[in-house]
Write a protein that binds this DNA or RNA. Structure first.
Lengths: 340, 340
DNA sequence: GTGAAAGCGCTAACAG
DNA sequence: CTGTTAGCGCTTTCAC
């Protein structure tokens, strides 16, 4: 573990000042081509790499943006992160990734620790709380925040979301168009924007169609995980009478339900049509491919990154809303010829 | 964007010295309980958070480890990262994640930029090159390197791998045990350890069973992507005579091939049995669930993290080999009753 | 137990 | 064009 070479080493070697070295290495205009050349040679020879920590301390910029998501093992988040990274690297920024695992406690700790080490934070909030005000510590101390997908009311931040209301409406209309009317909705925790908007989209669309929804047709909280989807299916099966269709606020719950239905001999879509939300890659791989609402995760990430750099530059964008797209597959095609 | 509060602010406020503040905040023994208390109060009041960049510069430690993987959108890597993170956070370290996208050029740039900002690097190397010597710049300058899964010869690093040879042997034996002998292998680029070991495991096991392998039964390079798997299937279909089984060095290629075979009306496992490698989550979701060799990705990540901290502590572990497990599903069960 | 002061490696005035 | 110097915010001797 030998000591790293600093600009002092190379300055000494050439008998010049450190400022010349600094200038040569950062392409400053006021330095002779000859000196610059000599310095660069020695720098290369000595395998010099700048100590970015020192640079950061000096300049005040960290050249790093922090990303906080529930977990990276969901394709939605991992590809959003790809979008963020692509944008960030293009700007010469690093990306620090953190997983809240949907725990507000963890998230708060993360956000706190982030304060001193990033220029900005892009996040999709943890679902297990209603109060994400700790994010305001960041914006209050000059660290811009951009929330994507799962936003939080009362947080001073730019937002990039998909039009969840519209997405839900598309899904429900697609079902209605096939003459289905007994349509259930498996909703997520209502304090999070994405899930409350999907519920609203469902409700309004049903109402516009003049269809009244039975009390027990809306299941709350049965959205985020495969296990919750399974539980939902079991409940419905126990009740005896199946709805004609169910619109899930998330693909994983839809998946769980499908597996459970299949186990019980219920046919999809013949006995029950299903639509999910997120368009995770597995949707098209299932025995009965799952219809779902695509959220353009990569694009969301990329836009969030873009908004971040706008804010960093002092041009605060307010909010971006991306149009979703309904991907129709077999799981929701009760009448096979009735495409869309 | 008000200025962040520093230890100077709080020192001034109390009329004490910055060293006292520093001591109070870092629980240094030589400071009176009373002063410590007062300082901490003011610190809390002013929402003080230490500027970690300054700390890093001063102490020389970055408290960050860098992770370089081909991409985070593969479940294998994202869960390995979870393992790394869990270990790192426990030690109070941050994790900086980079994606090489299997490009050596990108990887080299990343590795270079990492030099000054992390204490250690955990990586799974890019597949498109044979020369990963740039990792040696790191170890040469005192930054320990741990390679997991995809390692590279000639790189000074600790390694955490799964016993690929053994995994391949298990897969092939499972097929042999069902009386199958015409077994193909879809191998990956042979300059990468994981794929050459899988090929070796396949070859040796076949030989031990006294089965000679036709020239055209080994396909190289058809491993990493779904598209390559599709291409393989098309080639085989064009040739006319199908093998009885094929062992893929990766799940994604297996997936592509299965989809293509299905399209052509070839039944799995009746017409052709298939085994993959990695046990990606989608394996069990497919219409015909895919048998695969599990690599315990989370554990690999966790172990890699552990090895990293051992090295950082100056206790260099050499190499860890994890035992793989064959998960048998329908895709490889030609004789339904022949459960291993 | 407390304070003064010297840097960590670099950048950016300010001089010349 | 080049060099001198003052910090960025913090930790850590070294004095008192």
């Amino acid at each position: 573990m030998k000591k790293r070479t600093s600009i002092y080493d190379i300055a000494q070697r050439l008998g010049v000042s450190v400022s010349s070295v600094s200038r040569a290495l950062s392409d400053h205009p006021s330095i002779s081509a000859a000196l610059k050349e000599r310095i660069r040679e020695v720098a290369a020879e000595l395998h010099y790499t700048p100590n970015s920590v020192a640079v950061n301390l000096k300049t005040g910029r960290r050249n790093t943006i922090g990303v906080v998501v529930p977990g990276i093992n969901r394709s939605f988040f991992s590809s959003a992160i790809e979008g963020i990274e692509d944008k960030a690297y293009k700007q010469g920024y690093d990306v620090l990734i953190y997983q809240s695992k949907d725990s507000a406690e963890r998230e708060e700790r993360i956000v706190h620790s982030l304060a001193g080490k990033v220029d900005g934070v892009i996040a999709s909030v943890a679902a297990d709380t209603t109060d994400h005000s700790y994010y305001n510590h960041l914006s209050a101390s000059g660290v811009p925040v951009v929330l994507f997908d799962r936003t939080a009311p009362g947080v001073d931040a730019g937002t990039v979301i998909v039009d969840d209301y519209q997405g839900a409406a598309m899904a429900v209309k697609h079902l209605l168009r096939q003459g289905l009317t007994r349509i259930c909705h498996c909703a997520g925790p209502q304090h999070v924007n994405v899930w409350s908007n999907r519920l609203k989209g469902y409700l309004d669309t049903m109402q516009e169609a003049g269809i009244s929804i039975p009390e027990n047709y809306i299941f709350e909280g049965a959205n985020t995980t495969e296990e919750e989807g399974r539980r939902f299916a079991r409940t419905v099966l126990a009740e005896g009478s199946l709805p004609e269709a169910v619109f899930f606020a998330g693909d994983f719950a839809a998946l769980g339900a499908m597996l459970e239905f299949r186990k019980a001999g219920v046919r999809i879509p013949e006995d029950i049509a299903i639509v999910g939300f997120a368009n995770e890659p597995f949707c098209q791989l299932l025995p009965t491919p799952l219809s779902s609402v695509d959220q353009f995760s990569y694009k969301m990430g990329y836009m969030a990154g873009k908004m971040m750099f706008d804010r960093l530059r002092g041009e605060p964008q307010v909010g971006i809303v991306i149009a979703p797209e309904l991907i129709i597959r077999k799981s929701s095609l009760k009448t096979i010829h009735n495409h869309v």
